[in-house]
Write a protein that binds this DNA or RNA. Structure first.
Length: 653
DNA sequence: CAGTGAGCGAGCTTCCGCTTGACTT
């Protein structure tokens, strides 16, 4: 009997495949890429048509060995990596490996499938194909472009700003977003305005919380207390009636099932989880076989799973909760590579309240519940309700005013039965007895002073949302990118929000000034268009790289010779230097903030920057201070370090 | 659970995207 070897990326995918295939198939995982550009050097022979110098990855040695020894025992190798750009490239390098290292190479075939079911796999095995060279070239173009940008710009930063810094197609643009937001916040000037609410009494009902929306048929603009008082004078004396009463039937569709980006957003908003914590938790659920793959940008649900969900909905909620056909969701962007399904429970019968889920960790239970609810809700019937808009008009000596309140109520709960919306929304009053034209009496006017608010700093949720909209980064990189920009000290987190540091400001302004094309928000989008053309066979990968290099390389040289060294702004702490009497300032180093003299390098006084907590160390009675890890995470330690080694992640009591 | 703090000073730092284990404070 001839044995066959199948190679996929992940061990979990291998295990799943194993369930559908006879023992004559051996299934192994490559654990992602096995061959890549070298880490320690550029690895691109620019003068030889940008020829890449790939190497086997050091940390994949053991896996490569096991792939090779398995390959020696079989007559056929089947590459079943994901059906997307990166998956195709992994297949290509696996093929290369076997031809490179084996004396006798078995036949190598390539298969792809979009869902792991017996049928899909059998079908794929019946129709094996070849590695798509164009798709591999598109991946190579992406890889080399990123390498050139990253490994050429970073050293320039070492030279012009500080050693150890980095720049890249993705990370630099992410920092730019935070930079631009910071600028908007700096430029913002709050405007005073007043809102007026009113309470009326109708014939049968108290009509509360009506908001003033129009004055003399125009927008409400009250910018001072004086204006307000003038207005209140006649509002108080006006006569009021129900000006309009509109009832309307409305429906709402369920949201699509979760994908990496939306899971990260939802967990951040609902539970305050950062992207890494969410992914770590999802990974655990995935390995326990409870959910499908968690790094995906596809809304697809496997056909079999749709059937199970529909049965479950019918059995547990009733026929009226089941739409006539399954709900289908499509991505707006064409960037999605659709290699996987949406994130869903593998078995819909395992409810969040089940004992199996309750035995999980707290985090796992929470993430599972989000995934379970959103998947199932996505396949339920529309919510149906009724909307009411009530307007109350007032009149006094030629002046008119209009107050408004909206209400809604549920007629049929539909998918909202399982709603995991970001905010709990409550039904609003429906004022059943009102009639149009009915006169009402004013009980009270409640003015409130307000100020316009500056734009909000990004959170994990809002930043990931933005990146996805812009098509920057991939499901597997959202979380690592957010960690990286903190690790580099370009940004810091304050109350779960991203705040730009002076270092981030200096680097971003440098890059914006000299490399605006790379910092352009459309740089990635344009690259993706070119990659599509390469994948379609309409463009050669060398063309893309050469076109880029043509303007990038001379610019690099010019900036290196002409640009001045960048000065990083510092923050004064209002204290004099004990050595030279100069101003003491806060600077940002590799390990975070430290205090130094503004006369550096003439005066080299430095001191640690510590945040005090006012607490005493339980071991030696010293002071407890807040330090930060390399990655910017806070932890508590004793100020007597290294004499006292006490430290803790959590705030001591 | 997250992936830490110093000492010399010479050599090193860096990208994005695909995948999981390292092994203790």
């Amino acid at each position: 009997m001839s044995k066959k070897l199948i190679v996929v990326e992940s061990p979990t995918k291998a295990r799943t495949l194993g369930r559908f295939l006879p023992n004559s198939f051996q299934i192994l995982a490559s654990y992602g890429h096995i061959r890549d550009l070298p880490a320690k050097k550029l690895g691109i022979l620019v003068s030889q048509n940008f020829q890449p110098q790939y190497e086997y990855l050091e940390d994949k040695k053991k896996i490569i060995d096991s792939l090779l020894s398995a390959a020696r025992e079989v007559e056929e190798i089947i590459l079943a990596t994901d059906p997307d750009r990166e998956g195709e490239a992994i297949a290509f390098h696996l093929d290369y490996l076997f031809h490179d290292k084996l004396k006798k190479v078995p036949q190598v075939k390539r298969i792809t499938f979009h869902e792991i079911t017996q049928e899909a796999i059998k079908k794929a095995l019946r129709h094996p194909g070849r590695i798509d060279g164009n798709l591999v070239q598109a991946q190579q173009a992406r890889r080399l472009l990123d390498r050139l940008v990253g490994y050429k710009l970073s050293p320039l930063l070492w030279y012009k700003v500080r050693r150890g810094l980095s720049a890249g197609r993705v990370q630099s643009v992410v920092v730019r977003l935070i930079y631009e937001r910071e600028k908007e916040i700096q430029a913002f000037k709050p405007q005073e305005y007043w809102q007026v609410q009113a309470r009326f009494l109708g014939e049968k009902e108290l009509l509360d919380k009506f908001e003033l929306v129009k004055i003399n048929a125009g927008k409400v603009k009250i910018h001072s207390k004086a204006e307000l008082e003038k207005l209140l004078k006649w509002l108080e004396k006006s006569s009021y009636h129900i000006a309009s009463l509109k009832r309307q039937k409305i429906t709402s569709h369920p949201a699509p099932p979760l994908i990496t980006s939306t899971l990260q957003q939802l967990a951040s908003i609902k539970y305050g989880f950062n992207a890494s914590r969410t992914m770590r938790t999802a990974q655990a659920l995935y390995e326990k076989g409870l959910i499908t793959y968690h790094r995906t940008d596809s809304f697809n649900l496997a056909e079999l799973s749709l059937k199970e969900m529909r049965q479950f909905i019918k059995n547990n909620y009733g026929d009226e909760y089941l739409p006539p056909r399954p709900n289908i969701y499509r991505r707006k962007s064409k960037l999605a590579q659709e290699a996987h399904e949406a994130i869903r429970p593998t078995k819909v019968e395992i409810k969040p309240q089940s004992s199996q889920v309750r035995s999980l960790s707290r985090d796992e239970g929470k993430i599972y519940e989000l995934i379970w609810k959103r998947s199932l809700a996505s396949q339920m019937a529309d919510w149906q309700g009724e909307r009411l808009v009530v307007e109350i008009g007032g009149k006094k000596e030629g002046n008119t005013a209009l107050f408004r309140r909206r209400g809604w109520r549920t007629l049929f709960s539909g998918w909202r039965q399982l709603s995991v919306s970001e905010k709990e929304d409550k039904e609003l009053p429906f004022f059943k007895h009102l009639k149009e034209g009915e006169s009402v009496s004013l009980k009270k006017l409640i003015p409130e002073q307000k100020f316009t608010l500056p734009p909000k700093r990004y959170t994990d949720a809002s930043l990931i949302k933005k990146l996805e909209e812009m098509g920057i980064g991939r499901p597997s990189t959202y979380a690592p990118i957010l960690s990286k920009i903190r690790e580099r000290r370009y940004v810091e987190k304050e109350e779960k929000k991203f705040k730009l540091t002076n270092l981030g400001k200096a680097v971003t302004e440098f890059l914006l000034r000299y490399f605006p094309k790379v910092m352009d928000y459309n740089f990635t989008a344009r690259m993706e268009d070119s990659l599509d053309a390469i994948a379609q066979g309409e463009k050669k990968w060398v063309r893309l790289i050469a076109d880029f290099w043509k303007w990038f390389e001379p610019l690099l040289g010019e900036v290196k010779t002409k640009a001045e060294r960048v000065k990083i702004e510092v923050e004064k702490i209002g204290e004099k230097c004990p050595k030279c009497g100069g101003e003491l300032v806060i600077r940002i180093g590799k390990y975070g903030k430290f205090i130094s003299c503004s006369n550096y390098p003439k005066c080299n006084y430095t001191r640690e920057y510590v945040e005090k907590t006012g607490l005493k160390c339980s071991e030696c009675g010293g002071e407890v201070i807040i330090r930060r890890t390399r990655k910017g995470r806070r932890y508590y330690a004793c100020s007597n370090y290294p004499k006292c080694k006490w430290m803790s992640w959590r705030k001591p009591r």
